[in-house]
């Protein structure tokens, strides 16, 4: 297969995963939230409402695309793409199994965080271009919170890198093979010394992808719909597709870094290799379900409290954690 054809195929594979993910996750969100809220969620379109999201996509595609007169047209149009593309790019380094990955990058971890950090630029563009005060506030909030939390997020994964000795996402999964005491899987999440790191990662990760309780940039009860207020039809669809996609990526990263990636313990390695992608996606969806659970119950943090938590608590804590991990690795390893 020519490298060009291979690249094109991989691009469409990533796009396909992203779109299918979006549709599945929106349905899942509605059902999970529905049952959390003692109601049923969609029930009428298709069996148990399964076709609801597909119909919604059709609706979004055929809806009139309203562009308000006062917007900065150029920025307004490209902003959804600037939000969407990095989130698509982030799929490149995810290790779905030991062979299923788009590129095998030695700096996969760094790459994924780097592309994800482009998202707030798009959100800020959307907020600024919309010529709407709510959008502007939403964009500014997104920029502030994501810059603030990029630091603890990256710092929080450094202990993992120190222990695993690599930034290759596949390599990190390999480092979690084997057992402690003969039967406890070697996942970093099962190592009590890693729990503070995991906690910092989870908090910073939720902020980074704008999820409740840190969904400041949308904050529907405060700033209407934040940066997405003026968007309609598929532009709105793109903004939200990338949000769902980011949720998947963050969950997949958590699975890779802490929960053994595509592997399951106590089953033969061949099985792991054969069913790797299924296991990986299933694990990622468990993470997403937890996020939805939080979304269904938690109130929203206030922006100044969020900033305080990031700069004053999480960054020092993660620096200390790196230091301790370094000492530990030096002494034990």
């Amino acid at each position: 297969m020519s490298p060009v054809l291979s690249a094109v195929l991989k691009f469409f594979a990533a796009l396909g995963i992203m779109l299918v993910n979006g549709v599945v996750m929106i349905y899942m969100l509605r059902k999970v939230l529905g049952h959390l809220h003692i109601r049923l969620g969609p029930m009428h379109v298709g069996w148990k409402g399964t076709m609801q999201t597909l119909m919604d996509v059709l609706k979004l595609l055929t809806k009139e695309d309203v562009t308000p007169r006062a917007v900065d047209r150029w920025l307004f149009r490209i902003a959804p793409a600037v939000v969407f593309v990095p989130s698509l790019m982030a799929y490149a380094a995810l290790p779905f199994s030991n062979t299923w990955r788009i590129v095998d990058l030695d700096t996969g971890l760094l790459y994924t965080f780097a592309v994800l950090s482009l998202v707030p630029i798009g959100i800020l563009m959307a907020g600024w271009a919309s010529a709407n005060k709510w959008s502007l506030l939403g964009g500014m909030r997104a920029a502030a919170q994501q810059i603030a939390y990029e630091v603890p997020l990256l710092l929080s994964v450094l202990p993992v890198v120190l222990v695993a000795g690599t930034m290759n996402l596949g390599g990190i999964v390999e480092a979690q093979q084997g057992y402690w005491l003969g039967f406890i899987p070697g996942w970093f999440a099962l190592n009590p010394l890693m729990w503070p790191t995991l906690l910092v990662f989870m908090i910073a990760g939720l902020v980074e992808i704008n999820q409740t309780p840190f969904d400041m940039s949308e904050g529907e009860s405060e700033i209407v719909a934040g940066f997405a207020t003026e968007y309609s039809a598929m532009k709105f669809g793109l903004l939200f597709l990338s949000e769902f996609s980011n949720q998947f990526i963050m969950s997949a990263l958590g699975v890779t870094l802490f929960f053994g990636g595509w592997t399951l313990p106590w089953i033969p390695a061949e099985m792991n290799h054969a069913f790797g992608p299924v296991i990986f996606i299933a694990k990622a969806y468990i993470g997403i379900a937890v996020m939805m659970w939080i979304r269904g119950t938690f109130p929203r943090v206030r922006i100044d409290q969020l900033m305080e938590l990031g700069w004053k608590r999480l960054i020092p804590v993660s620096l200390v954690l790196i230091m301790l991990t370094g000492l530990f690795v030096k002494v034990v390893g």
Partner: peptide
């Protein structure tokens, strides 16, 4: 009040 602070769940419980 819960909705105003961003929480969603208790609204529907209260409605029950």
């Amino acid at each position: 009040f819960g909705l105003d602070t961003g929480a969603m769940g208790q609204f529907l419980y209260a409605m029950r």
